[in-house]
């Protein structure tokens, strides 16, 4: 029988037709429309790949984090700089629910300072524990060295603890396969202010999609 027959008889499953559980709203309607779950998949491990700072990679998460911080804890593991609390408060995040974990707080100001291997492993351990913790709603980490086996463990930890896990990595890891549920590539918009988001892996859709967000009005 032909392919159309099979599809008609509902014996072939198509990825973009599968109904997905509704995700956590991102706060940006343009992005919500693009994501299969109409929001961030929850609970899941999400990779954000970007080479540039200062383009709004963290502001993208603030609406969802503000929503989660109402009832649950947020854990940030090894942030590259100091969070500025009044700005976080302005976006609706409750600083009393934020825990910063860093096994080796960097003494110098340069964000490219290489960290000691033990502290990297300790930070990864802390990230996994944060994902497994039920009281933690979301956990963010900025690290580079993760192989696919570690990522798979983190993905399972997300599901075990019902936590949103976000990993910020340099863009060169886009070419390497990863078991994360959603992978985004962020780059500064070429001709306008704002952010270009390219979704090159997500559950339930096969083609890469891009969208443009203007965050300057947001901060």
């Amino acid at each position: 029988m032909s392919l159309d027959e099979l599809v008609r008889r509902a014996q072939v499953w198509r990825a973009d037709q599968a109904p997905l559980a509704r995700g956590l709203t991102t706060g940006f309607p343009a992005l919500d429309a693009l994501l299969p779950a109409q929001g961030w998949p929850y609970p899941a491990l999400i990779e954000v790949l970007t080479d540039c700072e200062g383009i709004g990679a963290l502001s993208l998460w603030l609406p969802a984090l503000a929503e989660l911080s109402r009832a649950q804890w947020l854990i940030w593991v090894a942030p590259p700089h100091l969070p500025y609390v009044p700005a976080l408060q302005r976006h609706g995040l409750d600083p009393a629910r934020l825990l910063i974990v860093d096994a080796l707080p960097a003494e110098e100001a340069l964000p490219q300072r290489p960290r000691v291997r033990e502290s990297i492993e300790a930070n990864l351990w802390a990230f996994e524990q944060a994902l497994r913790c039920v009281d933690c709603g979301a956990s963010l980490t900025w690290c580079e060295a993760l192989d696919s086996r570690a990522l798979r463990r983190l993905q399972l930890a997300c599901e075990a603890g019902v936590t949103l896990g976000v990993i910020f990595r340099p863009a060169r890891f886009a070419a390497i396969a990863s078991p994360a549920v959603l992978r985004l590539l962020l780059s500064p918009a070429v001709h306008a202010t704002g952010l270009d988001i390219q979704i090159f892996k997500c559950r339930g859709s096969l083609r890469a999609q891009t969208c443009h967000l203007d965050l300057s009005a947001y901060s």
Partner: peptide, 19 residues
């Protein structure tokens, strides 16, 4: 955690550890 930023002030999310 009660002090709030005045409206109109622009503030970043990150501060570098030292200027």
């Amino acid at each position: 955690c009660k002090s709030k930023l005045a409206k109109g002030l622009i503030r970043p999310l990150w501060l570098t550890r030292r200027p």
